[in-house]
Amino acid sequence: MSELVHDLGIPLRFTPWRTTSRYVHWFTREHGRIVTLIRGALRPKSFHLGQCDLFATSDLVFYRRAGDAIHLLRECRLLRPRPSLRTRWAAASAASAAAELLLRALPPSAPHPRLYDLTSRWLDALGDAPCPETALVWFELRVLDLEGLGPKLDRCAGCGRTHPLPSEAAFNPAAGGLLCGQCRAQRADQRGISIPLPRAILDALSAWRHAGHPTHLPAPLPPRLLHPLSDAVGAFLRFHLHTTLPGRDLMLEVLREASPDRFALRPPPLTMDSNGRVAKLADAQDLGSCGAIRGGSTPPSPTRPAVAGSPPAGCPPPPTNIPTETSP
Protein backbone atom coordinates (compact mmCIF):
# COMPACT_ATOMS: atom_id res chain seq x y z
CA MET A 1 0.00 0.00 0.00
CA SER A 2 1.50 3.37 -0.97
CA GLU A 3 1.04 6.65 0.81
CA LEU A 4 1.07 10.12 -0.76
CA VAL A 5 3.75 12.29 0.85
CA HIS A 6 5.21 15.74 0.27
CA ASP A 7 8.85 16.78 0.63
CA LEU A 8 11.67 18.98 -0.65
CA GLY A 9 14.37 17.29 -2.67
CA ILE A 10 17.57 17.79 -4.64
CA PRO A 11 18.21 15.44 -7.60
CA LEU A 12 21.64 13.85 -7.37
CA ARG A 13 21.43 11.58 -10.36
CA PHE A 14 19.19 10.69 -13.29
CA THR A 15 19.16 7.23 -14.82
CA PRO A 16 17.11 6.41 -17.91
CA TRP A 17 14.33 3.86 -17.91
CA ARG A 18 12.82 2.72 -21.17
CA THR A 19 12.62 5.42 -23.82
CA THR A 20 11.23 8.51 -22.16
CA SER A 21 11.04 7.69 -18.45
CA ARG A 22 13.74 8.04 -15.89
CA TYR A 23 14.65 7.33 -12.33
CA VAL A 24 15.60 10.30 -10.19
CA HIS A 25 17.88 9.75 -7.19
CA TRP A 26 16.85 12.45 -4.71
CA PHE A 27 18.28 13.72 -1.48
CA THR A 28 15.10 14.75 0.31
CA ARG A 29 14.77 16.61 3.55
CA GLU A 30 12.32 14.36 5.38
CA HIS A 31 12.90 11.01 3.67
CA GLY A 32 16.64 11.01 3.02
CA ARG A 33 17.97 9.44 -0.14
CA ILE A 34 15.19 8.00 -2.25
CA VAL A 35 14.59 7.00 -5.86
CA THR A 36 11.46 7.98 -7.73
CA LEU A 37 10.28 7.00 -11.15
CA ILE A 38 9.05 9.74 -13.49
CA ARG A 39 7.05 8.15 -16.26
CA GLY A 40 7.37 9.91 -19.60
CA ALA A 41 9.80 12.42 -18.10
CA LEU A 42 11.35 13.29 -21.45
CA ARG A 43 8.15 13.58 -23.48
CA PRO A 44 7.70 17.12 -24.84
CA LYS A 45 4.35 17.49 -23.09
CA SER A 46 5.40 15.84 -19.85
CA PHE A 47 4.03 17.63 -16.83
CA HIS A 48 7.38 17.11 -15.10
CA LEU A 49 9.59 18.38 -17.90
CA GLY A 50 11.94 21.07 -16.60
CA GLN A 51 10.60 20.72 -13.07
CA CYS A 52 13.62 18.91 -11.70
CA ASP A 53 17.25 19.44 -12.56
CA LEU A 54 20.49 18.21 -11.06
CA PHE A 55 21.49 20.16 -7.93
CA ALA A 56 18.29 22.24 -8.00
CA THR A 57 15.68 22.12 -5.24
CA SER A 58 12.20 20.93 -6.13
CA ASP A 59 8.99 20.54 -4.23
CA LEU A 60 7.78 17.00 -4.78
CA VAL A 61 4.77 14.84 -4.06
CA PHE A 62 5.20 11.11 -4.43
CA TYR A 63 3.57 7.83 -3.62
CA ARG A 64 5.80 6.35 -0.95
CA ARG A 65 6.15 2.62 -1.00
CA ALA A 66 7.36 0.52 1.87
CA GLY A 67 11.06 -0.07 2.41
CA ASP A 68 13.64 0.99 -0.12
CA ALA A 69 11.34 0.50 -3.10
CA ILE A 70 11.17 2.91 -6.01
CA HIS A 71 8.54 5.53 -5.36
CA LEU A 72 6.30 6.99 -8.04
CA LEU A 73 6.46 10.76 -8.51
CA ARG A 74 3.11 12.44 -8.79
CA GLU A 75 3.94 16.17 -8.74
CA CYS A 76 7.14 18.13 -8.97
CA ARG A 77 7.75 21.85 -9.02
CA LEU A 78 11.09 23.59 -9.37
CA LEU A 79 11.69 25.89 -6.41
CA ARG A 80 15.35 26.90 -6.59
CA PRO A 81 17.03 26.31 -9.97
CA ARG A 82 20.58 27.47 -9.03
CA PRO A 83 21.40 28.72 -12.53
CA SER A 84 25.01 29.55 -11.68
CA LEU A 85 25.74 25.83 -11.43
CA ARG A 86 24.72 25.57 -15.08
CA THR A 87 27.00 28.36 -16.21
CA ARG A 88 30.10 27.67 -14.10
CA TRP A 89 31.42 24.27 -15.08
CA ALA A 90 33.97 24.18 -12.25
CA ALA A 91 31.23 24.68 -9.67
CA ALA A 92 29.07 22.06 -11.39
CA SER A 93 31.99 19.61 -11.26
CA ALA A 94 32.34 20.15 -7.51
CA ALA A 95 28.58 19.67 -7.12
CA SER A 96 28.81 16.46 -9.11
CA ALA A 97 31.56 15.15 -6.82
CA ALA A 98 29.45 16.10 -3.79
CA ALA A 99 26.50 14.23 -5.30
CA GLU A 100 28.64 11.13 -5.66
CA LEU A 101 29.66 11.40 -2.01
CA LEU A 102 26.04 11.73 -0.85
CA LEU A 103 24.90 8.83 -3.02
CA ARG A 104 27.56 6.59 -1.52
CA ALA A 105 27.54 7.85 2.05
CA LEU A 106 23.82 8.08 2.76
CA PRO A 107 21.83 4.95 3.49
CA PRO A 108 18.53 4.81 1.60
CA SER A 109 15.40 6.27 3.18
CA ALA A 110 17.19 7.56 6.28
CA PRO A 111 16.16 11.18 6.96
CA HIS A 112 18.97 13.61 7.74
CA PRO A 113 17.47 17.13 7.77
CA ARG A 114 20.65 18.82 9.03
CA LEU A 115 22.72 17.35 6.24
CA TYR A 116 20.01 18.25 3.74
CA ASP A 117 20.01 21.87 4.94
CA LEU A 118 23.80 21.97 4.76
CA THR A 119 23.75 20.60 1.22
CA SER A 120 21.09 23.05 0.11
CA ARG A 121 22.93 26.07 1.49
CA TRP A 122 26.27 24.83 0.23
CA LEU A 123 24.86 24.47 -3.30
CA ASP A 124 23.47 28.01 -3.02
CA ALA A 125 26.92 29.32 -2.15
CA LEU A 126 28.87 27.09 -4.53
CA GLY A 127 27.77 28.96 -7.65
CA ASP A 128 29.72 32.01 -6.51
CA ALA A 129 32.60 30.20 -4.81
CA PRO A 130 35.93 31.50 -6.14
CA CYS A 131 37.56 28.07 -5.79
CA PRO A 132 35.18 25.11 -6.13
CA GLU A 133 37.78 22.58 -4.96
CA THR A 134 38.20 24.44 -1.67
CA ALA A 135 34.43 24.51 -1.33
CA LEU A 136 34.23 20.78 -2.06
CA VAL A 137 36.82 19.82 0.56
CA TRP A 138 35.07 22.06 3.08
CA PHE A 139 31.74 20.38 2.31
CA GLU A 140 33.25 16.90 2.62
CA LEU A 141 34.63 17.71 6.05
CA ARG A 142 31.25 19.06 7.11
CA VAL A 143 29.52 15.90 5.86
CA LEU A 144 31.98 13.79 7.84
CA ASP A 145 31.32 15.88 10.94
CA LEU A 146 27.55 15.50 10.60
CA GLU A 147 27.91 11.76 10.07
CA GLY A 148 29.99 11.57 13.23
CA LEU A 149 33.07 10.57 11.29
CA GLY A 150 34.90 13.90 11.27
CA PRO A 151 38.67 13.68 11.63
CA LYS A 152 40.19 14.68 14.94
CA LEU A 153 42.16 17.79 14.15
CA ASP A 154 42.58 19.57 17.47
CA ARG A 155 44.18 16.72 19.37
CA CYS A 156 46.13 13.58 18.72
CA ALA A 157 43.80 10.84 17.54
CA GLY A 158 46.03 8.28 19.28
CA CYS A 159 46.77 9.57 22.77
CA GLY A 160 44.37 12.54 22.94
CA ARG A 161 47.13 15.04 23.68
CA THR A 162 46.18 18.54 22.58
CA HIS A 163 49.46 20.44 22.76
CA PRO A 164 51.97 20.71 21.47
CA LEU A 165 51.22 18.98 18.17
CA PRO A 166 54.25 19.01 15.91
CA SER A 167 54.51 21.72 13.30
CA GLU A 168 53.88 19.05 10.72
CA ALA A 169 51.43 16.69 12.32
CA ALA A 170 50.70 13.49 10.50
CA PHE A 171 47.22 12.84 9.19
CA ASN A 172 46.32 9.20 9.49
CA PRO A 173 42.95 8.13 8.06
CA ALA A 174 43.02 4.80 9.89
CA ALA A 175 43.66 6.49 13.24
CA GLY A 176 40.87 9.00 12.62
CA GLY A 177 42.83 12.25 12.36
CA LEU A 178 46.09 13.83 13.37
CA LEU A 179 48.80 11.90 15.18
CA CYS A 180 51.57 13.26 17.37
CA GLY A 181 55.09 12.16 16.65
CA GLN A 182 55.09 9.46 19.32
CA CYS A 183 51.84 7.87 18.20
CA ARG A 184 52.91 8.14 14.60
CA ALA A 185 56.09 6.21 15.35
CA GLN A 186 54.14 3.57 17.24
CA ARG A 187 51.69 3.08 14.39
CA ALA A 188 54.23 3.30 11.63
CA ASP A 189 53.80 -0.27 10.47
CA GLN A 190 50.41 -1.06 11.92
CA ARG A 191 47.58 0.78 10.25
CA GLY A 192 48.26 2.38 6.89
CA ILE A 193 50.29 5.46 6.13
CA SER A 194 50.47 8.82 7.81
CA ILE A 195 50.30 11.86 5.58
CA PRO A 196 52.31 14.86 6.82
CA LEU A 197 50.33 18.09 6.70
CA PRO A 198 52.05 21.46 7.10
CA ARG A 199 51.06 23.82 9.87
CA ALA A 200 49.39 26.21 7.40
CA ILE A 201 46.92 23.50 6.41
CA LEU A 202 46.17 22.67 10.04
CA ASP A 203 45.54 26.36 10.74
CA ALA A 204 43.16 26.56 7.81
CA LEU A 205 41.37 23.39 8.93
CA SER A 206 41.03 24.73 12.44
CA ALA A 207 39.53 27.94 11.10
CA TRP A 208 37.09 25.98 8.92
CA ARG A 209 35.99 23.85 11.82
CA HIS A 210 35.19 26.87 13.94
CA ALA A 211 33.68 28.92 11.14
CA GLY A 212 29.93 29.14 11.31
CA HIS A 213 27.50 29.40 8.50
CA PRO A 214 27.58 27.24 5.38
CA THR A 215 26.65 30.17 3.20
CA HIS A 216 30.10 31.59 3.99
CA LEU A 217 32.49 29.28 2.24
CA PRO A 218 36.13 29.56 3.23
CA ALA A 219 38.51 31.72 1.24
CA PRO A 220 40.39 29.78 -1.45
CA LEU A 221 43.48 27.93 -0.38
CA PRO A 222 46.48 28.14 -2.69
CA PRO A 223 46.97 24.90 -4.67
CA ARG A 224 50.17 23.99 -2.79
CA LEU A 225 48.04 23.66 0.34
CA LEU A 226 44.70 22.74 -1.17
CA HIS A 227 45.84 19.73 -3.17
CA PRO A 228 47.54 17.92 -0.25
CA LEU A 229 44.56 18.66 1.96
CA SER A 230 42.12 17.52 -0.69
CA ASP A 231 44.01 14.27 -1.18
CA ALA A 232 44.22 13.64 2.55
CA VAL A 233 40.46 14.17 2.89
CA GLY A 234 39.91 11.89 -0.11
CA ALA A 235 41.93 9.13 1.59
CA PHE A 236 39.96 9.70 4.79
CA LEU A 237 36.63 9.44 2.94
CA ARG A 238 37.63 6.25 1.17
CA PHE A 239 38.80 4.65 4.38
CA HIS A 240 35.83 5.55 6.56
CA LEU A 241 33.08 5.14 4.00
CA HIS A 242 34.55 1.80 2.85
CA THR A 243 34.14 2.80 -0.75
CA THR A 244 35.98 4.33 -3.62
CA LEU A 245 35.03 7.69 -5.04
CA PRO A 246 36.18 7.48 -8.66
CA GLY A 247 34.05 10.41 -9.75
CA ARG A 248 35.70 12.65 -7.17
CA ASP A 249 39.13 11.92 -8.63
CA LEU A 250 37.84 12.60 -12.14
CA MET A 251 36.35 15.94 -11.15
CA LEU A 252 39.49 16.98 -9.26
CA GLU A 253 41.50 16.18 -12.36
CA VAL A 254 39.35 18.53 -14.41
CA LEU A 255 39.45 21.26 -11.77
CA ARG A 256 43.22 21.04 -11.32
CA GLU A 257 43.81 21.08 -15.03
CA ALA A 258 42.15 24.46 -15.02
CA SER A 259 44.29 25.64 -12.14
CA PRO A 260 47.17 27.96 -13.12
CA ASP A 261 49.83 25.68 -11.65
CA ARG A 262 48.13 22.56 -12.82
CA PHE A 263 51.24 20.50 -13.27
CA ALA A 264 52.57 21.04 -9.78
CA LEU A 265 51.97 19.12 -6.58
CA ARG A 266 50.16 16.18 -8.11
CA PRO A 267 50.33 13.30 -5.61
CA PRO A 268 50.06 9.64 -6.42
CA PRO A 269 46.58 8.31 -5.63
CA LEU A 270 46.09 6.65 -2.27
CA THR A 271 44.56 3.21 -2.39
CA MET A 272 43.17 0.79 0.16
CA ASP A 273 44.45 -2.69 0.78
CA SER A 274 42.26 -5.77 1.16
CA ASN A 275 41.63 -4.94 4.81
CA GLY A 276 40.29 -1.52 3.98
CA ARG A 277 43.44 0.24 5.12
CA VAL A 278 45.09 2.99 3.17
CA ALA A 279 47.87 1.25 1.34
CA LYS A 280 51.45 2.32 1.80
CA LEU A 281 52.68 3.93 -1.37
CA ALA A 282 56.04 5.25 -0.33
CA ASP A 283 58.53 4.82 2.47
CA ALA A 284 58.31 7.24 5.33
CA GLN A 285 61.64 8.74 4.27
CA ASP A 286 60.22 9.52 0.87
CA LEU A 287 57.31 11.40 2.35
CA GLY A 288 59.47 13.90 4.15
CA SER A 289 58.16 17.39 4.62
CA CYS A 290 54.83 17.40 2.84
CA GLY A 291 56.59 14.86 0.67
CA ALA A 292 53.68 12.47 0.32
CA ILE A 293 52.29 15.17 -1.82
CA ARG A 294 55.37 16.62 -3.35
CA GLY A 295 56.74 13.83 -5.44
CA GLY A 296 54.18 13.21 -8.10
CA SER A 297 53.99 16.06 -10.49
CA THR A 298 52.20 14.98 -13.61
CA PRO A 299 53.73 15.87 -16.93
CA PRO A 300 51.51 17.48 -19.49
CA SER A 301 49.65 15.01 -21.62
CA PRO A 302 50.88 14.76 -25.19
CA THR A 303 47.28 14.85 -26.30
CA ARG A 304 46.43 17.91 -24.29
CA PRO A 305 45.13 20.73 -26.44
CA ALA A 306 46.98 23.99 -26.67
CA VAL A 307 45.05 25.80 -24.04
CA ALA A 308 47.83 27.15 -21.91
CA GLY A 309 47.98 30.87 -21.55
CA SER A 310 44.36 31.53 -20.73
CA PRO A 311 43.44 29.07 -18.02
CA PRO A 312 39.74 28.40 -17.73
CA ALA A 313 37.76 29.23 -14.63
CA GLY A 314 38.97 26.84 -11.99
CA CYS A 315 40.89 27.97 -8.96
CA PRO A 316 42.17 31.53 -8.92
CA PRO A 317 45.89 32.33 -8.59
CA PRO A 318 47.16 31.52 -5.12
CA PRO A 319 46.76 34.37 -2.64
CA THR A 320 49.81 35.62 -0.84
CA ASN A 321 48.35 35.16 2.63
CA ILE A 322 46.88 31.98 4.05
CA PRO A 323 43.32 32.41 5.28
CA THR A 324 42.90 31.78 8.95
CA GLU A 325 39.30 32.71 9.51
CA THR A 326 36.06 32.91 7.63
CA SER A 327 33.06 35.04 8.28
CA PRO A 328 30.80 33.75 11.01
Binding site: R13, S96, A99, G247, R248, M251, V254
Partner: peptide, 23 residues
Protein backbone atom coordinates in the same frame (compact mmCIF):
# COMPACT_ATOMS: atom_id res chain seq x y z
CA UNK B 1 29.78 14.32 -20.28
CA UNK B 2 31.63 15.53 -17.22
CA UNK B 3 29.86 13.68 -14.42
CA UNK B 4 31.16 12.27 -11.16
CA UNK B 5 28.10 10.13 -10.52
CA UNK B 6 28.38 8.54 -13.96
CA UNK B 7 32.13 8.14 -13.52
CA UNK B 8 32.92 10.19 -16.63
CA UNK B 9 35.87 12.55 -16.56
CA UNK B 10 37.66 14.48 -19.26
CA UNK B 11 39.54 11.41 -20.53
CA UNK B 12 36.28 9.49 -20.98
CA UNK B 13 35.15 12.12 -23.45
CA UNK B 14 36.42 12.42 -27.00
CA UNK B 15 37.44 15.96 -26.19
CA UNK B 16 41.07 15.73 -27.23
CA UNK B 17 39.97 14.31 -30.59
CA UNK B 18 37.66 17.31 -30.93
CA UNK B 19 40.43 19.80 -30.23
CA UNK B 20 42.68 18.04 -32.72
CA UNK B 21 39.96 18.08 -35.35
CA UNK B 22 39.34 21.77 -34.83
CA UNK B 23 42.99 22.48 -35.53
Amino acid sequence: RLSAVRGEGRHHLRADELFRRVE
